[in-house]
Structure formats: structure tokens, C-alpha cells
Design a protein around this nucleic acid. Sequence first.
DNA 1: ATCCTCCCCTAC
DNA 2: TAAGGTAGGGGAGGAT
Length: 976
Amino acid sequence: MDGDHDPEGELFMDEEEDEPGPSHHMDPRTVSPELFTEEGELTRNREETSFNTRESTVGESRNTVEAPMVIDPDQPGPSRPPVDFALMNRWLKEGVEEEEIQGNDGRRRGAAVGWMMEGRGDEKGQLRSFGHYMRLKKDKLQHQVNVLGRVRQVSEIFNGISIFVNGFTEEDQLRNCMAEENFSTRIMPPQCIIVPPALELRSLIQAHGGEYHVYYEYGTTTYTVASEIAVVKRSKRRKNEVIVKPELIVDSVAAGRLLDHKDYLLLPDEDEMIRRNGATISQAMKKLTEKAEEAETRGEKRQAALDARDAAFIDEYYARSRLHLISTLAQEMRDYVSSLRDANSCTERARAEMNERLREGRGEGGNTRSLPPSEKAVFHLDLDSFFVSVTLRNRPDLRGRPVAVTHSSGSKESNGFSEIASCSYEARARGVKNGSLVRDALRKCTDLVCVPYQFDDYRSVSKMIYDIIASHTLELRAVSCDEMYVDATSMIRSLDGYGIEGVVDARCSIGPIIVANYLRELIREHTGCPASVGIGPNPLVARLATRLAKPDGVKWIQEREVEEFVANQKVSDLPGVGYSTLNKLSEIGGAEMKCGDMRKYEERELEVIVGKKTSHLLYRMIRGIDKSEVVVERVRKSVSCDINYGIRFTKDEELQQFLASLAAQLEKKLLQARMKAGAITLKVMVRSADAPVETPKYLGHGRCDTHTRCGRLDPVCGDAEKLVIEARKLMTSIKAPVEELRGIGIQLGRLAPSNSAARPLASQLNRFFAPKKNGGVMEIIEKEKEEEKEDGRKRPRGVRFEEGVDEIEDHRRPIKDFMAEDVDLPTRMHISSSDLRSQSLPVSQKLSFLSEMKIPRMKMKIVELMVEDPSPPLYGPLLLHGWALIQRGDLPALMEFARATISASESSFIAEGWRFAARLICREWEKACSRRYSAVPDLLEREEGKKWNEIVEGVWEKEGEYSIDIDVSMTTFPIM
DNA sequence: ATCCTCCCCTAC
DNA sequence: TAAGGTAGGGGAGGAT
Ligand SMILES: Nc1ccn([C@H]2C[C@H](O)[C@@H](COP(=O)(O)OP(=O)(O)OP(=O)(O)O)O2)c(=O)n1
Ligand SMILES: [Mg+2]
């Protein structure tokens, strides 16, 4: 936290909650819509409350509003009332309109409030959002309900339950409600906002089948509802009185069933406390510590790191964390594919085999639809319920039954707060989802079979599917451990059965479906796991098709079907459209909207709702447009470690120690990535003020506020000692009480290769080079080569400088011509010698591995560098080394270095892009020289017979500041 | 304008 | 008990 900032303000943003910004757009950070689940914790807040930015339509719906609370977010089926988002939005708007009185006098830097829980149900659970909306504006809504006297029973959630509300008289409550008319002037403790006044609780409980007691009735009143301990303390606590927070009522309504009151106790229940390891920090800690000490004094080997205070915790935790595993696997697979590509891994053998096999069996079934010559076939391949499938290989007895992979055995002693990583389709049919809590899942599906993880197997299966696909083609993009895109176009065309001379015979040709089935069968053979494949002309359509293909199937949407197909897909099924986006969109069309229904909106209309980029993407997606390529090589931009589980510190030393462990992990990761970091960000989760100290989920983070601080690492750094020093500084600046910490993460950014170069420069260059990976440039090379062959002469290229002639021949063309259309290129770059000096070491020293080598050795070293595609870490050092030579006036060295670079780029092992990149680099050196020396060396040796020494004569001793302005809008390309 | 910080969102 | 990670896109608003 900032030193000048009131910590309360960090945690309680409520006063600002409902103040619209100047643009009538609320700052998402200031709102913490919260949704309680039965566990009494919050879902991860994924909502931006921009729904109140629309023009109000006051009046038209007011009288139709009913208490709409009986929605079970997890209960599918016809019994579930549909949720009308538009209607909800309208209610909320009414509220907002009245509150739009005050401007926003500057935003306070505050914590993000509202973290979550309740499992991350994979489904985009729009229905959950009701609780969320209600939380936000329920005061208003309920006030209306009351005033209108509409307390009408709509459910039986609270049958047999009665409440007494302690704390305020009804008169107080009424006044309270009035005061709520203007949130911005309210000066009340933040809890008051989320505590419905008594009147509202009354209507809530009555509407849902419960009783409201005006006075506490011994033996009859089930719960006393109170929001502040102070209030309860004022009056004596009655015997057997169960005092709960009002959230019990609100959340039960939101969840559509009576939740466990134990999660909502205002005061710790003594028995409960002991059973749950205590409800206060000290008790919880004592208990945990005792346990550990006990084990130690008994001389036992410590079996498990209990929480983050243990030195072995991170390793232990990582060994059991599925999310860590799938993140790691995804990264590993991306690296693996990229290494195969670098190694020019062979695809001929497997393709030949496929060719044979398919020839034998061709013409079978109705799957012979062929790929039109003009159409692409992108595959989206995804294993069916991956983790479950792995288990089923050795548990055939479980086939056909609802199965879930989870840490919990599902037995009695489990609390059921364990998450389900993956569940079988039989379980899904009963409403279970990946990410559900075991407890919820068991309620829906009592015969659910819980099976443990098999981490090692996931890794090996994952590797196998990548091996299988990559042996056929390298035109693939690794998405996750069980999911990838494959551009199968060229693979299919290369098959004998494809057709003759592009003339495709629909009856006998081998089309995408046959190929997909062949690959699926290979995967099943080798891994025992079923895979599904969606096929489309682009990645988007392929991905959407996969949903229909599953389980264990293929679905091909052809170009001509795309428009209609996409029109019928739910917006919520679009990649990138999650919970929050969906809610924003609900404002203009309802939650169940199909892509086709969305087409009536202009891009501009969408932009107001979901933002610039998202609207652009959305506008195209709902039309099935996706120009992205399957193969996109990306440079990693960050490395991070987050742990938001098991964080329970009592002492500062424990925290400091933990930061050191995190830093050690990061050091490992950086080393692996051969990177150093130029920026560091610390993120902490701090228990929300009103969240219970002990979370329902054992050692979970519970509901938290998050705080982030970042700093620079100058010079770039990769070692744990320095990282931890910085992390500790950031931690101090956040000023969170150690015992309230629930999660800690460190992100490292501004990555630079461990052996090199200035990052800002590299990042600009990266933007410059990246687009070539989209295939555009290489295709152009091929095409122009062809043309030149046909014409029998080379087209003039580059810039010709004639001595003594002012006129220069400029054959350069805008580089944009060669780039994928969406790329936004800078037109100029400015680099000065101070950029070079900003490094802590002189550049030449830093790059000594280059400059001290003799040319042949140097070339080998460069070749090594060029095994990978051009990327900032790789061309950064090359470019800078050249500049350093120019700066020193060592032009002969520059010449040799340029030769080595070009020559390396022409050797057969190197990544294709370097043929282009190396020459571009040389061009930049030439321009640098032309600025500094008013002479242009012909580094690319275009001009026959022109001697280097003639050009550089007399410029050896020049020194001093230089800077260059690189025109990156033009290129001499193609040079080769 | 553009960059930087501190978030939020999404996906597996 | 339970193992709620991680990387990238993106936006708002202040700093430059
Ligand atoms: N919330 C989640 C989502 C996924 N996973 C893991 C387990 C899954 O098996 C694996 C792959 O995720 P998918 O989204 O592909 O889901 P499945 O493969 O389980 O099912 P399917 O692809 O058939 O829908 O990632 C997880 O641990 N937690
Ligand atoms: Mg899958």
C-alpha cells in the first residue's frame, strides 16, 4: 500500500462503489460484487459492472419486478426459471440513475476486492451472476419489493426456518433504506452496504417460505441475524442462540437452497472452532504448529508440509497441484513443439505411413467428403475428459459410470471442498462440471465415483499425443496438455487419395474427416484415450466444431456452412467470452444469445459494452471470421509463481522465508527459459475484512482483496538473491498484516535473454519481426522466386548508392506489404548510443562471446543462435554487437561480423526466418553507418567489386554520441 | 499520444 | 481436510 494511503481505504472501497466515473463508466476496480455460495465464500469476481452505463429505461419495468430469487445456479433443466439479464439490468439501472449525482473526484488507488471460491465451474455460469447482481443492488431491489408490498412466496428454501434480526429497529431500518437512496453521501461502515436492512431480510425470508420474528423467541427462533459483533455484544447472548450473518439468507436465496449456517456464524462456535482447527488465527496456528511439533518430537519424519511456513511446502504443493501441472505441461508442450520445429523434425515417414493406410481403406463409410482446393482444413484436437480417460485405461469397470478426478475420496471424512479436475460425460449429464466442488457434485450425482490423480500419466499421454501429431506435421499450435490446433491443409493435399491435379473426386477422395479419424485412432492406440477433432476453415470454427464432435467424434464445418453454423452457436461458447463479457452482453440481448442474433449490432455498439479490442474480435467471431494462423511462434513475456493455497503465516520471518522460496523457484524457471527479468510484480491476496479467518476450504484463500506492486530490475536479473530483495521491498510497500495473507505471487516481466541486450530495443524489434511468423513473408519469398525464374531476371532490389551521384535508386517497398493485415507496425524507431550505455556493462564486454571470437568460430556461434526462430533474445545481441562495433569505429570488424551473420543465415540448419532477419539486421547497420560516417558500407555485398576499405577510409577515429532513426516502414526485402 | 501501473478476464 | 497455477490479452487512468 502506499504510504500515504489509509489502509482501510484499500480494503473498503464501498463508498466509491456506486459512483459512476465521469464517462458514466464505472471503474471496475471500485466495485466488488460478491457472490456467496453455500460455503459462505465468494466466487472469484469476474464482473465489471458496466451494465449501469446504459441509458435508463426507468418505469417501464418497475411494476413487473418480482422477487426473483429462486435460482439454483447449478440446477439445469426445465425447472430452472430463465434469467432475464436485460430485466435485471433494467432494475439496476433504475437504482443507478438515482445515484448518478456525484461526479468522480479522482479515483483512489485501491485493492481489487472480491475473490472467490466455489470452484471454477467450467461452464460460464451466467446464472450465478444473479446473486452477484443482487448483492450489488439488493438494498434497492428489496426496498422496492417491500414498499410495493410484494412479499409473495416464491420458494420454500426457508421452510421451517425463522429469523430474528438483531441490531436495528424497523424504524431504523426504514431510515437506513432512505439513506441508501444516495450511496455517495452515505457514511457508514462498509458492511452496512452488504447487509440488507431488517425489512429486506424480512421480505426475503418470507418470500422463500421462512418466518420473520419481531422478537427473539426462545426455542422457536432458528437464527438470530446480526451484522456487527458490537450489536450482539450490546445485548446479552441468549442460551442456544445461533447468531448468523445476514449473508446466510441472501446467499441461500441466491443459491436457491438453505446453506449451512455454520459457514455464516457471526461469532465462532466453540465446538465448531475446535473441530475446525479454531476460528482465530492464533488458535488455528497453535493447532497446526502443535501438530507439526508433535510429529517432530516423536522423531517421525515429517510426512507433509502442512502450510506455507514449511520450507518444503512449495515442492510438496506443486507435486499435488493439478493447475500447476497443467500450466507446466502446456509450457512444456509449447517448448517441445518449438524444439521439434527448430530441429526440422521429419514428418515424411509418418505421412507415408498414413498415405499407405488410408489408401488401403479408402472410400469407406460416408466420411469421404473432400477438401475443396481453395479451402483450408484446420483441426482442433482435444482429448475427451482427459484426466478421467487416463484413469479409465486401467479401470474398465468404471466405464459408463459417472467418474470424477479429484483429491478427495468423496468419503465421509472429506468436507467436499475439493475441486473436480475432470469428470466423465456420464457425470456431466448429471450436472457435474470440471471445476465443481466434490460436495456439490455429490449432491447432484450421488453415485459419482471419485478417483485420484495420476500426474505422471498425464504428462506422458500429453507428450505422446504431441509426438503423434508432430510426426505428421509441424504446422501445429500447442494450446494445452490435451489440446492443439493443426493446420492439416497441406497434409491432406499431400495424400495420394486427395485427388489428381487438384481435381477432387468427391466419391473417392480422402478428406479431412478420414484424416482426423486416422489420427484419432493413432492416439487411441498409443495412449488409450479418446480424442475428438473439430475441423473448420479457421481455428475459431474448428474449435467450435469440437464441441459438437465430443465425445469421441469428428465434426467438420466447411466454408460454406460457416455462416449458418456460427450463427447457431451460443455467444457464451465463443472463446474469450466468459462470465464477465457475457454479463455485459446480456444488456443488449439476453444471456442465451446466439451469434447470429448478435450480428445486428454495429461494431461500435459492441465497443461501448465490451471495449475496443474485444468488440472487434467479437464482431468478427460471430461471423465466423478468424484470420489467425495455426502456427504462431511467440516469445515468452513473463515468468511467474503464484501460491494462493496454504498461506498461513504468524511471523514475519515465515513470510520472508517464503518469499525466498518463491524467488528460488523463479530462478529455476528463468534459468530454464534462459531469461533474465527486467521487471518484477508482487501480488498478494489478503483476507477480506469480513471474511472468516478460517476458510471453509482447508487452507484455501477464502475471500480476499488483492494488491499488486511492481518495480524494475536494473540491470536485468535472474538470481534468487536479488529477486527476493526486490520482492521484500514490494511486500513492505503493500503493508499487509502477515497473518492476513492468503496468497502470494511473483511475476517477472520485461524478459531479456540471459546473455544479452537492451529490452526496449528488443521489444520494438520484436514487433517488427513477429508478423513474419504468420507465414506471409515466406510465401511472398516463394512467389517472387517463382516469378523471377519465369521472367529469367531478378527484379531490382534494395537501395543503390552510386558514388558521386546524388540520386539513389530506391527499390524498397513498404514492409507492411509483407505483413499480416492486423499487425500494427511502428514506422520509425529511434535508438541512441545512450540506449547502449544504459546497460550496466559495456556492450562489447557483455557480448564478449561474440566479439572475442575469430570469424569461423563466431559464425558457428551465430549458427547456434539461429537454430531458433528470430526473436528479441536472439537478434538483440547480434544487432547490438554491430552497433557497438559501429560506435567504436571498428568497421572492418563490423564487415566481418556482417559476413558471418549472413553466411550463418544461409546454412541449412537455421530457422527459415533468419534469411530475412539477418539481412534486415545488416540493413540497419548500414543505416547506422550512414548516419555516423556519412558513408554506407555494402554489408550485403550487393555491389560487385566495391572495396570495403574505400568506403571506410578515414572514419576510424570518429567517436562520440550517435543516434539513429530507423525507418522500419520500408524494406529492401527480398534481398536473397 | 504513448507508456506505465494496477488491476480484471480468460483458458486449460 | 486439501493441494485455488499461470500466461497472455486488455482497459482505465495517471505520468511523461
Ligand atoms: N477447471 C479445470 C479444467 C481442466 N482441468 C484439467 C483436467 C482436464 O481433464 C484437463 C483438460 O481440460 P479440458 O477443458 O479439455 O476438459 P476435459 O479434457 O476434462 O474434457 P473435454 O475436453 O472432453 O471437455 O485440464 C482442470 O484441472 N481444472
Ligand atoms: Mg479435453
